[in-house]
Design a protein around this nucleic acid. Structure first.
Lengths: 232, 232
DNA sequence: GGCGATTCTGACACCCCGTCAGGCCGTCCG
DNA sequence: CGGACGGCCTGACGGGGTGTCAGAATCGCC
């Protein structure tokens, strides 16, 4: 029906716990030189994606940018989506580290609000640096692509879990009856969406500082069930 | 460089306050029959978009589905994006009505939480019904397309403003120092993002009811600055 | 029934896709 | 040093989508 089939297959491979040794189109394992051009293709894909609409991203352009022929691209990737999968994996791995910003200490008072702000800033920066890849991951996940959905989930799961733990660890009466996982997921969604649309929101005359503070308040409130004591 | 130019032009037209009378490719105003096939093309575009990845949406398929030739499509739209613009406009107009769910009464106590829940449910339903178009609008807005960004902003602005008014009208001490617009924008972002990814979140074992309640809590908390009194 | 206006489309040139078979080039062995 | 082997690359091609004409088909009206 569409090139989906092959892409899904490679993506499944890439998802395996033991990453099946990398194979080129001819089934052989690439050597040093091959891996280099493969990486070059990935870099060019990422670079082009930053300046091109996803719909207009062409294999032709990628390979031209990389100084090779289109056939070379197909030697290393069954299709564009597979290259994107690899980029998405790498990005997601780095994104998973955002969870560390949640911290270990219980979110009491100022400690909590500071942690919230740190998380907000971390997300904004990370999304700013990886906007191009992240928006494609987001689209494909929404379109129901299982592979990209899994990548996205894995990327956000650690942060979601960290927040969920923070909620449970607090054991506060104010929010002991919330579904901690759901609340954490909602908070992460909020962070992701604002980060994704930050340029658009700015263009609509909404102050970035205001967004930051609002998000931090909501994260703090969502985790602790309490209002912010002294936001400033 | 790309078909962007023509698309941007038509989109600009569509944005004009006085919608320049509709023109076909030959510059003439379509009659009854022409408008009918134009509409048929739009319907087929929407239908296909629901089952096809955005990247795989082809003029060929749309026109085949509509029982005409590709040339006919180009008679009414300079490119696919322009057809999507029209669909997006219509969807956005309906989406703007979500603002009514915020209500006029001040968000004190149960009234407020009920309003929050009503809004949450409204957003979830609306996004469920228009997922295909909305995700493309979202992508193109993120990619920096001014036309789609404007459509999106217009769609969400009324709800954002309504929430912002609700915050200000409360005049509560608990949140009088928040940037009401930013807070409202963040809340709307949260609603939109969870709604967009609802299927994915469900697939990740996150309960829809939990999401609903968490969002309602955050909306209530964001607007009033208070914790939820009796969530159940 | 015929005529002009409207609507549609066949045909075409162009470009991208995806896939071979075969060519290039480093390097290792004799 | 020369040859040959293996890993790497690409020219070339069939298939199909894009976008644009000129002109054919259809409609509505006299």
């Amino acid at each position: 029906m569409s090139p989906r089939g092959a892409a899904a297959r490679e993506r499944a491979d890439a998802t395996d716990s033991a990453p099946t040794e990398l194979r080129a189109a001819d089934g052989r394992v690439p050597g040093r030189r091959g891996l280099a051009t493969r990486q070059r293709l990935l870099d060019c894909t990422a670079r082009l994606l930053a300046n091109t609409s996803y719909r207009d991203l062409k294999v032709t352009d990628i390979s031209r940018e990389a100084g090779t022929s289109p056939a070379t691209f197909y030697h290393y990737f069954p299709d564009i989506e597979s290259a994107l999968t690899v980029l998405a994996q790498a990005t997601a791995d780095r994104g998973a580290e955002l969870a560390e910003l949640v911290g270990e200490e219980p979110w009491k008072g100022t400690v909590g609000y500071d942690a919230a702000l740190r998380l907000v800033d971390g997300v904004l920066v990370f999304w700013g640096e990886n906007a191009a890849v992240l928006r494609v991951v987001d689209l494909l996940a929404k379109e129901g692509d299982e592979g990209f959905r899994a990548i996205r989930t894995r990327m956000l799961n650690s942060t979601t879990r960290a927040l969920s733990d923070a909620i449970v660890n607090l054991g506060d009466k104010g929010n002991e009856d919330v579904d901690a996982t759901a609340m954490a997921a909602v908070l992460v969604s909020m962070l992701a969406h604002v980060a994704e649309h930050q340029p658009g929101l700015e263009a609509a005359q909404i102050s970035v500082d205001g967004l930051r503070e609002s998000m931090a308040r909501l994260v703090y409130g969502g985790v602790t069930g309490r209002r912010v004591a002294t936001p400033r």
